[in-house]
Design a binder for these strands. Structure first.
Lengths: 222, 222
DNA sequence: CGCCAGGTGTGCACTGAGTGCCACGAGCGC
DNA sequence: GCGCTCGTGGCACTCAGTGCACACCTGGCG
């Protein structure tokens, strides 16, 4: 029944547009009563995102199952990958939906509220893990937002490629950028840093003299 | 007329709730015709955010007026401060609205779409400034998201304090955290960095020997 | 003065989403 | 058979939002 409604809805959305399709049209095509539609989907928008509720529950469970020794930023990155995997399960459907949400402002707004719930789940997890740290709550919110933005950036470029690109690789790369900015290497130092600072990132196996020379030049002491 | 509608609307929203107030109630209290309400506000939600459209235009203009030599991250942080200033212009109103949006899911969703437009404005500006850089688009989106998250974090804690805290200081601090993670000092280095790295943040006026010693210990070479 | 043009406010009827309520029918235990 | 529940459908209702037409007012022009 749910599936029948989703199928009928997308068929109509694609052939005549979202706003030009009424709920009556959908239930007529699916051959069910109008009242049943709202039994399965609390609103017309929900039929466009039929699996996000489940995915959100999966993510919450995944984060709740974390151990104390997990690296938090790594963990939220893995959690974000769950969403990507849901999209990748059904590339054709995801691409269609992407084109739909891009065109219809109402659906964009609805998608934002869905994404916001993912972001809050990540942020809540990080807030607990960062409890007691200086600026723990702030860092949790910022990292959650950055992870979501990076994930969405990679996801959308994959969707624009009609599902041809390698989604996993793109997300790995995007999340790698975030992790290198917020990873465990330097959180205590970065928090609250003054403006007049120099940031140096060095490989642990780099020659020491090379690192020192780089720092000298960055500090303007040469 | 606009002001009369906003005043009447908030009076009713506060005394009986947003969803329990119909547009007919508002126009009856304001003493105007129902049709006029929708002339000034395209939807019922818009009356809750009467000044965001103007603020968004201000931000866009501010970013468009940037020079080539402005530091982009600094610039978007300053742009975000425009929003804070709008809230701070009317602390009592902002606090009331905050309590309203926190309770009503529909208003939260609407606020998200407003925030999203700010974020897109920042991201578009950064995309242009980062054009050609490696991962320029990705970095633009992530930084915009981080700036917005930091700003909102500070803004909300100010709103929760009923406007008593120092909003400017809180936002400065929050944005400082973001800038120290994404500032100009190390973007090329951080992008795509491997996991096995050490990040050192040093004040430009710190003694050189002190910095080198810190790095030695971080690299595990002592 | 008469007339006209444009903007602003209003009334009315209509569409369509979403809800509450009740009725019907199919399964199932007693 | 009789309850019973549960999934479903139908009906009427509220309310947001829109299109249309009309009234009013204001200012310019002959």
């Amino acid at each position: 029944m749910r599936d029948a409604l989703v199928t009928a809805a997308f068929q109509l959305f694609l052939e005549r547009g979202y706003e030009q399709t009424t709920v009556d049209d959908i239930v007529a095509l699916a051959g069910v009563g109008r009242r049943s539609f709202f039994r399965y989907f609390p609103s017309k928008e929900d039929v466009v995102f039929p699996d996000h509720e489940r995915c959100l529950a999966d993510m919450t469970a995944f984060l709740a199952a974390s151990g104390e020794d997990d690296e938090p930023v790594q963990r939220v990155c893995d959690a974000a990958r769950l969403v990507l995997r849901m999209y990748a399960e059904n590339p054709a459907f995801s691409v269609q939906r992407y084109r739909l949400t891009k065109r219809v402002p109402g659906l964009r707004a609805y998608e934002l509220s869905v994404v916001w719930r993912y972001e809050r789940a990540l942020a809540e997890y990080l807030r607990e893990r960062f409890a007691g740290r200086r600026d723990g709550i702030l860092r949790a919110d910022v990292i959650a937002a950055a992870v979501v933005a990076a994930h969405n950036n990679a996801l959308r470029s994959w969707l624009r490629s009609d599902g041809r690109d390698d989604a996993e690789a793109a997300v790995d790369h995007a999340l790698g950028c975030v992790r290198s900015a917020f990873g465990t290497a330097a959180p205590q130092r970065i928090a609250g840093a003054a403006e007049d600072v120099v940031v140096v990132v060095a490989r642990r196996d780099a020659p020491l003299w090379r690192v020192v020379k780089e720092i000298e030049s960055q500090l303007g002491r040469n």
